Simulated scan of single mutants.
Amino acid sequence: MSSFYVLNSDSVIVRRTVKKDIPAIVKLQEESFADLAKIGNIWHPDELRSHLEIFPEGQLVAELDGEIVGSATSLIVDLVPEYANHTWKDITADGMLTTHTYKGDSLYGADISTHPKVRHKGIGHKLYQGRKDVTMKFNLKRMIAGGRLYNYCDYANEFTPLEYALKVVRCEIHDLVLSFDLINGFRFIKILTNYLEDARSLNYASFIEWKNPHFNTASIS
């Protein structure tokens, strides 16, 4: 991937995932989430095939010079109440996305990844824009997700998860995931506990939300 060291983000194409992308996505996951890969918390081929069968419109990849450098997995859900506590396993049906429903009102971001060598180059932003486009295409009220508090392990002796998240919101602390989410127009709602087995976040995640500015209530029957 030596060609990735110099990158013009305009050369990156975001498109819908197809079946032939699956091996490349698995490799991307292994290299993007080395810590989670050690405990098996990355996508497996059977899960990725299920995603394409259940909700093909919500699966995206970022491509550079014919190689997959990023991916995003989404499903449509209907949370009741709208800010209900949940775990990653429950909301995604343990990664199979069988909880997806076209009758829902929210696009749920199950996963987003970019290759370590092309981070901070605008690829994640393009994938988020792709998700926003999906949200607007299906006239969904919002996009939501649980983002692991990536750097919380470094501050757990000083702050509660909520205190840490609020400091990130106030730009007093930088968090690899939550800071990126905030830059991309999300707002922090609350802390989700026992969200995902993850040593870095100590299993805590931030419930984040982006509201669709073009949501049309008149079209809801």
Rank of each mutant, 00 (worst) to 15 (best):
S3Y: 14
S3L: 03
Y5H: 02
Y5S: 02
V6G: 00
V6H: 02
L7G: 07
N8H: 04
N8M: 01
S9W: 04
V12A: 01
I13V: 09
I13C: 07
T17V: 04
K19T: 13
K19W: 15
K19C: 15
K20H: 07
K20N: 08
D21H: 00
P23I: 00
P23M: 03
A24S: 13
E31H: 01
S32L: 00
F33R: 03
D35Q: 13
I39R: 05
G40R: 04
N41H: 07
L48H: 09
R49H: 11
S50C: 03
S50W: 05
H51C: 06
L52T: 00
L52D: 00
F55G: 04
A62P: 03
E63Q: 00
E63K: 00
D65R: 00
G66I: 00
E67Q: 09
G70S: 08
G70P: 10
S71F: 05
A72N: 04
S74F: 01
I76S: 10
E82C: 11
E82D: 14
H86P: 08
A93W: 01
D94G: 09
G95K: 01
G95T: 03
H100S: 02
T101L: 02
T101V: 04
T101H: 11
G104C: 04
D105I: 14
L107W: 11
Y108M: 05
G109R: 01
D111I: 11
D111M: 14
P116W: 02
K117Y: 01
K117H: 04
G122D: 07
G124K: 08
H125R: 13
K126I: 10
K126A: 06
Y128L: 14
R131F: 00
K132E: 05
K132C: 01
D133R: 15
V134K: 13
M136F: 08
K137R: 13
L140Q: 12
L140P: 11
M143C: 10
R148C: 11
N151R: 09
C153D: 15
A156S: 13
A156P: 06
N157Y: 09
N157L: 13
T160L: 11
P161L: 07
P161C: 08
L162E: 12
L166F: 12
K167T: 11
V169Q: 12
C171M: 15
H174G: 12
D175L: 01
D175T: 02
L176V: 10
L178H: 05
D181Q: 12
L182W: 06
I183R: 14
G185A: 10
G185K: 13
K190W: 02
I191P: 01
L196K: 07
E197L: 10
E197M: 10
E197I: 09
E197W: 09
S201L: 03
S201I: 10
S201F: 05
Y204V: 09
Y204R: 06
Y204D: 07
S206C: 14
S206Q: 04
I208K: 15
E209M: 15
W210Q: 08
W210V: 08
K211Q: 15
K211L: 15
N212E: 14
F215E: 11
N216H: 10
